[in-house]
């Protein structure tokens, strides 16, 4: 009974893990310095921003939706915060809270339009993508630097463990990841997200709070995007209206490579973390070797192909006769039952 068996649901996650470990080992063999814990710590802190946004997006995609506004909301968060601190001299802590509210607001707008007016998520979030980006330019056409001592300490903060430093970004990311994984697997909210992604109609009939959950999922997506923007301020304390152009696609790519099925219902938050790592390692591999940046995009594209193909094959694969406990269907079998 306790045989190790790979459930269909776990195959994409397992594939992601294999790819991630392979990539890490290969890169390390090529550039031995890559194995140093310092580089590993940097790998996490460099990608914390993308990771946090992608975790939020994973919930959206698991629920059967999509959020294209992520990158714009991240940019808006940096702009909003930099301006609040620089021009309105707000205390950075207050600015952070307000920025998180802005993120939730955009997310609520997404969720409310999608739920109450039954609009397609792709179009609604495409609209907020433009709206949020437009607001960035409304705030300022040029980058706004936030020169507060707060941001300096923000960037230097972290946990020092011997030679390596766990940056604040990494710590926040780890916290977000734990909260997300807990919410996804151990709360009714999380299970409802999975259920509605699997079959929204059935989820409704089972009496699950589909509407409320849907709005919440987008609010969380917006919140995560805003938090990602704030964490980015730790590296470069400035807001730029042109920041993160097109990065919503990186986020979606990371989620898909992480094994979450784009149609929803199947996937793991941990997979998304691995997906972001895969993209990060690829990036490092290319910068370490001074290779053409074109290869990042090409490898990402190829990986996406492989994963989407794998998901499609798995989706069609119905483990057939083995599971039928008592049936064997033949074409001539009588369907009616006699009395």
């Amino acid at each position: 009974m306790k045989r190790l068996r790979l459930d269909q649901r776990h195959v994409p996650l397992a594939a992601t893990l294999v790819v991630c470990v392979l990539l890490y080992v290969l890169t390390g063999l090529q550039y031995p310095s890559f194995f140093s814990p310092l580089v590993l710590a940097d790998l996490f802190s460099d990608n914390a921003r993308l990771d946090i946004a992608a975790l939020g997006s994973t919930f959206v995609i698991l629920s059967g939706g999509i959020d294209l506004s992520v990158a714009s909301v991240m940019a808006l968060a940096t702009m909003f915060m930099a301006t609040a601190v620089e021009r309105f001299h707000l205390h950075p802590a207050i600015a952070i809270v307000l920025t998180l509210f802005v993120g939730c607001g955009v997310g609520y707008l997404n969720g409310a339009l999608i739920h109450f007016f039954d609009l397609p998520p792709f179009l609604v979030t495409l609209a907020t993508l433009f709206l949020a980006r437009g607001c960035c330019f409304l705030i300022s056409m040029s980058p706004v630097a936030a020169e507060s001592p707060f941001f300096q300490s923000f960037g230097e903060a972290g946990l020092h463990l011997g030679t390596i430093t766990l940056h604040l970004g990494t710590i926040v990311f780890a916290g977000v990841a734990i909260v997300c994984i807990y919410a996804a697997h151990l709360t009714r909210f999380g299970r409802t997200v999975y259920a509605m992604g699997g079959n929204e109609q059935a989820a409704r009939l089972m009496g699950l709070a589909v509407g409320k959950t849907k709005v919440l999922v987008y609010v969380f997506g917006g919140l995560a995007a805003a938090l990602a923007g704030i964490m980015a301020m730790a590296n470069i304390p400035s807001g730029d209206p042109l920041n993160y152009l097109g990065q919503e696609l990186d986020v979606i790519a990371a989620v898909v490579i992480g094994g979450t099925v784009l149609t929803g219902g199947v996937g793991y938050l941990a997979g998304t973390v691995l997906g972001v790592l895969i993209l990060g390692i690829m990036q490092d591999f290319i910068t370490f070797g001074n290779r053409d940046a074109a290869w990042t995009q090409i490898t990402t594209g190829l990986l996406l192909f492989v994963f989407v193909a794998m998901q499609t094959v798995l989706g069609r694969w119905k483990p057939g006769q083995r599971q039928k406990l008592w049936t064997r269907r033949t074409s001539t079998q009588s369907i009616g039952i006699t009395s």
Binding site: R9, H185, L186, T187, R188, R191, T192, Y194, A195, G197, G198, N199, Q201, A202, A203, L205, M206, G207, L208, G265, V266
Partner: peptide
């Protein structure tokens, strides 16, 4: 069948009314 095919059998029976312990399923 109005259930969620991508979730486990057990979860399908208890979706929406999962027993919890200290807020955890």
């Amino acid at each position: 069948v109005n259930l969620i095919p991508s979730l486990s059998v057990a979860e399908n029976i208890f979706l929406g009314r999962q027993p919890t312990r200290w807020g955890r399923i």
